[in-house]
Design a protein around this nucleic acid. Sequence first.
DNA 1: CCAAAAGTGTTCTTACTACACCCATGG
DNA 2: CCATGGGTGTAGTAAGAACACTTTTGG
Lengths: 248, 248
Amino acid sequence: MTPAHLERSDPDYRPADFPAVAVTTDLVVITIRDARLCVLLVRRGEKPFRGRWALPGGFLRPTENLDQAAARELTEETGVTVARAYLEQLASYGDPVRDPRMRVVTVAYLALAPDLPAPLAGGDATEARWRPVEQVLHAPAALAFDHGRIVADGVERSRAKVEYTSLATVFCPEEFTIAELRHVYEITWGTVLDPRNFHRKVTGAPGFVEATGESTGRGSGRPAQLYRRGRAQLLHPPMLRGAAGALS
Amino acid sequence: MTPAHLERSDPDYRPADFPAVAVTTDLVVITIRDARLCVLLVRRGEKPFRGRWALPGGFLRPTENLDQAAARELTEETGVTVARAYLEQLASYGDPVRDPRMRVVTVAYLALAPDLPAPLAGGDATEARWRPVEQVLHAPAALAFDHGRIVADGVERSRAKVEYTSLATVFCPEEFTIAELRHVYEITWGTVLDPRNFHRKVTGAPGFVEATGESTGRGSGRPAQLYRRGRAQLLHPPMLRGAAGALS
DNA sequence: CCAAAAGTGTTCTTACTACACCCATGG
DNA sequence: CCATGGGTGTAGTAAGAACACTTTTGG
């Protein structure tokens, strides 16, 4: 078989005729701020949808793959490195009329990050801001393009993933208490969990969290132990959010 | 705000300069044949990778969205309509050198279908065939492009989805016995399940299956009741495949 | 001492496991 | 009658739900 680099240089190998498409990556960056699930939005400085809020994103560059493009956008928009956050591909969106200029297919990524300093403005965004996801879910058409739908998909994925993975810890600082971790679940799901059963479940799940030995005295009441995230990626059995597991 | 059709015709609105990308959809069509999980492959009639086995797929057309492109490919390659099968977006793959001709981003779809007549050849495929997924997972590099990786991702998604959805029924004919449904799980997961507990769990899960009242006498032993798939999409609680739930 | 939050012990209940047992048909 | 697979009953066990109770701090 002919090596790839030879084939690439041979013009006969080009596909006959294909529709011109632009590919972008868009980011659904989710964090917890002021006890609310928030998503990062930027205000568009260009047409179309100039002045409307949209997801951060941009065109795929020639030499980078999809994951690299998303990681680059994340760092550009938030200053956060991939090491400190979590990034995974969400889904692709390619309705023919989703962008009025031309055919654009976007590969959306979901990023989960701890509470961050105020977001950076940059690129074609005149402004950047954290917005509570409830506002977006309630009025998805307020965002540019189909970004309201993408945010909804990202939030749904987040809510599902914290159930059976240890991802809830990426919303917490480096060291955190069990109560702080519980608040992450309560905010993500909009439920109230029993602190006592939650504590037992989290500390009993091997590799979920590991104690630092330190404790914190902030606030009233008995000081809480501090924990770091453990090595486990998956939770067996998962956390439960439904009728069961939640307080009535 | 300016209507979309006006913006589209205004050349000022075009993005300055974006890399030329071709977008394709590829299908991971999975079925059960001869008690094995099988994936549909086509033999390539064109360079690159001429003569190698690959996933069915093709270029996105100007007026269709991603789901429509995948549904069209599915019907073209298998003759199966979307109504009879299950189709969902799997993931997108966009490594810069995954196609030696040019930059190609593919949006892969996962299709689950009941046992089908011999697949159709068509398009640029000289031949089409069902191949046991184990062969592909064992030697992913035997397929063209990165299709081995895509198949692996599709199989993993299938195995996970039958756990908490009622999707296993799409592998069965219109009417099926509980034992046939159990075989779907056993083949998908490569485990052996207790027939008695499986029967109770499936018939006890509301909306999973509904009895037709008919029964079948094929084979020896007591005739089995026939069931149709129910309306439920999700299984609460899920089927279990791990150490628990399987026979030793 | 009291309020407040952290953390433990214990009972109740659900749901899965394992397996004995009965049912209905073909040969 | 026996073999074969379909289907039910039931005791044992793992894990969640609910909640009483103890611990440790600040005021």
